[in-house]
């Protein structure tokens, strides 16, 4: 697969704050990436750097093999939908879509129109009079209908209810299958999107904490529950990232995959297993990092 994004040792400093700290990663053509992490972890800054909307303090970025800054050839292939996008005061919904149509060579106008109707967006309504959810819908429509080879959604669903978010995920999947392209989804609603993702980047305090395939990440942790002493016996020598005691019971979240041998041993001890969701795993890992514990990289 072709690498379309290369980020090498990129940093972004704001006065005394390192928003992005020597980050390196690559994105491959045709995959859906999840950029996950807590608010303020540096996700948005990384995406702004990728799209040359912010300028790195250090390091190198390549999009489609070229530096993106002031590079029309490269930027024309990218669509970056961000939560904070501003529109001119006098613009109506129709104006925003018409302008977007001019800027994206792969724009599908009939698809955009179908989406507009699905989200019940009044064409003649001024954008500044839209509700938060409707404003998000404008971004979603532009992001999907642009069919840009690299499409980035940064928390695109603010103000949308669960039904509308589900609609967005379904549309994204359906359109991605028809028109494969590289998608980056930045979100903290990890459970909602985890099945859509092929690859996960977890950002924590300006750094990349995890850069893994979603499927292998899912198998990298499990929870084991039972009487405290038995759980401790079982978990000896394992990487326990979380302990939740309840009276004499203990649930331990363990890093590592569960082999048949361990499963057998746990059954002998009378312990029970539970899966650990992607969200749970990431929450635990980022929490440990923030608490300054020695959580190792998975």
């Amino acid at each position: 697969m072709r690498t379309i994004v290369e980020v090498r040792e990129v940093s972004k400093r704001y006065k005394d704050n390192m928003a992005v700290d020597r980050v390196s990663f690559t994105l491959e053509e045709g995959k859906i990436y999840g950029m996950l992490g807590r608010n303020g972890a540096g996700k948005t800054t990384i995406m702004q750097l990728l799209t040359a909307q912010a300028i790195p303090s250090d390091g190198e970025i390549r999009l489609f093999g070229e530096a993106p800054y002031e590079n029309a050839r490269v930027l024309g292939q990218v669509c970056f939908i961000k939560e904070s996008q501003k529109y001119p005061d006098n613009f109506k919904v129709a104006d925003a879509l018409a302008v977007a149509a001019m800027f994206f060579p792969n724009w599908d106008a009939s698809y955009a129109e179908a989406l507009r109707q699905q989200y019940n967006l009044p064409e003649r309504r001024q954008i500044k009079k839209l509700s938060r959810g409707m404003l998000s819908a404008v971004g979603i429509i532009i992001g999907l209908a642009s069919r840009a080879p690299l499409t980035i959604f940064d928390e695109p669903y603010l103000g949308l209810d669960a039904v509308a978010r589900r609609m967005f995920y379904d549309q994204l999947m359906a359109d991605y299958i028809e028109h494969p392209r590289t998608v980056v989804l930045s979100t903290h609603l990890i459970d909602e999107v985890s099945r859509l993702l092929e690859h996960v980047l977890v950002i924590d305090r300006g750094r990349i904490l995890i850069n893994e395939e979603a499927e292998s990440l899912r198998q990298q942790a499990f929870a084991v529950a039972g009487p405290m002493n038995k759980v401790e016996t079982f978990a000896q020598g394992m990487k326990v990232i979380q302990r939740d005691p309840l009276g004499a019971l203990l649930t331990a979240t363990v890093l590592g995959s569960l082999g048949p041998e361990q499963r057998h041993r746990a059954e002998e001890l009378g312990l029970e297993f539970a899966p650990v969701s992607l969200q749970e795993l990431i929450v635990q890992l980022t929490k440990n990092q923030s608490e300054g514990k020695a959580a190792e990289r998975v």
Partner: peptide, 12 residues
């Protein structure tokens, strides 16, 4: 009024 939109849509 317009710079954020133009840059947001990938203009140089």
């Amino acid at each position: 009024q317009t710079f954020p939109l133009a840059i947001g849509l990938g203009t140089t």
